[in-house]
Amino acid sequence: MGFKLLSKLLVYLTASIMAIASPLAFSVDSSGEYPTVSEIPVGEVRLYQIADGVWSHIATQSFDGAVYPSNGLIVRDGDELLLIDTAWGAKNTAALLAEIEKQIGLPVTRAVSTHFHDDRVGGVDVLRAAGVATYASPSTRRLAEVEGNEIPTHSLEGLSSSGDAVRFGPVELFYPGAAHSTDNLIVYVPSASVLYGGCAIYELSRTSAGNVADADLAEWPTSIERIQQHYPEAQFVIPGHGLPGGLDLLKHTTNVVKAHTNRSVVE
């Protein structure tokens, strides 16, 4: 069995187990497998329904001669939608809004960016022009300005110390501490036991640490421990890039980060 097929099978099995364990909360999309990078042309966006009122959005972007996937989250909030992270750029984010209108038909009224990198804030200006209120932590807003990236308009308070959590509509926002970046936030959907790890969490097929220019490698494993301790009931975990899975993604990420750190020390 090929690795790609095995990865998709694991996603399907995880979703099936969740649907059985929580039949009222989960209505997993039966329309197909989780979209992969090879299936999404740059400039297009796919939506994948995880649970009743919960979707991931998947886009792709060219970077350094390669094409990478990027995940975000959409959560229903009454007759409105909360968006977590842009679709990595203005063109993708405009396509995301169009796809949401086509498939869901509810307005996106608020959006949260989970850290300051372009795959999370690139497209904020498109959201703002569409009347979406954009939010991020003060740290993310400051770092985005320093980096020359787009800056969300509103500040999220109460997320300055490791372990801080605040309720934001249908989700809980959690600051686990520094990891992929010093400002990275985690998003949890309690009604569906869905954990969105953003770039602080890796997919299972990833074996290298990737972009760690703004990471705190020493603190990252401790931050992941905080996530595990705060959300032990999480059933569906979405990484910032690639295929979702279960809580095993947290341990896998820790292993990859520690291996990278150990290699760096040896070198």
Rank of each mutant, 00 (worst) to 15 (best):
S137C: 02
E33A: 10
L247M: 13
L195C: 01
I20T: 12
P190H: 07
N184Y: 04
K4F: 06
V189R: 00
E233S: 13
S56P: 09
R76F: 06
S30K: 15
L81G: 02
P107A: 10
G53S: 10
L5Y: 15
D125K: 08
I58V: 15
D64T: 09
A213E: 13
E150F: 03
V171Q: 02
W88A: 00
T14E: 06
T261K: 12
V28M: 15
T207L: 12
P41Q: 12
L204H: 12
T60N: 10
L97V: 03
R206G: 08
G169W: 04
A234F: 03
P107D: 08
V189M: 03
V237K: 00
R110E: 07
L204K: 14
I58C: 04
A98H: 15
R263T: 14
V265S: 12
F3V: 13
E203G: 07
S208D: 15
S56I: 15
S113F: 06
L10D: 14
L243H: 15
V126Y: 11
G53T: 13
S264A: 12
D216Q: 08
V187D: 04
L106W: 07
A87N: 04
Q235G: 08
F174H: 02
V237W: 03
G89M: 00
Y68V: 15
T134V: 04
S16E: 08
A192R: 10
Y175A: 00
A15K: 06
N71W: 00
S16W: 15
S162W: 09
E39V: 12
G158S: 07
N255S: 12
R141L: 09
P232T: 09
A136E: 03
F168V: 05
L250I: 07
H117A: 00
V266H: 15
H117V: 00
V126D: 05
L143Y: 08
A192W: 05
G242Y: 03
G2N: 15
G169Y: 05
Y68H: 10
S30I: 10
F168R: 02
V132Y: 00
P138E: 10
V108L: 09
G246C: 04
D85R: 00
E225S: 11
L195P: 06
I186M: 06
E44L: 09
A21V: 14
E33Q: 11
T109E: 07
R110L: 08
P170L: 05
I186L: 06
I201C: 02
H230C: 03
G158E: 07
V171I: 10
V108F: 02
D118I: 06
E225R: 13
G131N: 12
P232Q: 09
T253N: 02
E267I: 07
I20R: 07
P239H: 00
E219V: 07
E147I: 13
V171W: 03
I238T: 05
H241T: 00
G169I: 04
D29H: 10
A15W: 07
F63A: 11
R226D: 02
V257H: 03
T134E: 00
V42N: 14
R110F: 04
Y48K: 10
V75F: 03
Q103M: 14
E203T: 05
L97D: 00
H57T: 05
P170Y: 03
S22N: 10
K251V: 12
W220A: 00
P221N: 08
D52V: 11
L204Q: 11
A215Y: 05
G158L: 06
V187R: 01
T140Q: 03
S62P: 08
S155N: 13
D214H: 09
K8Y: 15
D248E: 14
N255W: 13
L185D: 02
M18W: 08
G210T: 05
E145F: 13
H180A: 00
G131Q: 07
E39G: 14
E233N: 13
D216F: 04
V54A: 06
Q228V: 13
L6M: 13
A144L: 08
L83I: 10
A178H: 10
G65W: 06
Y202A: 08
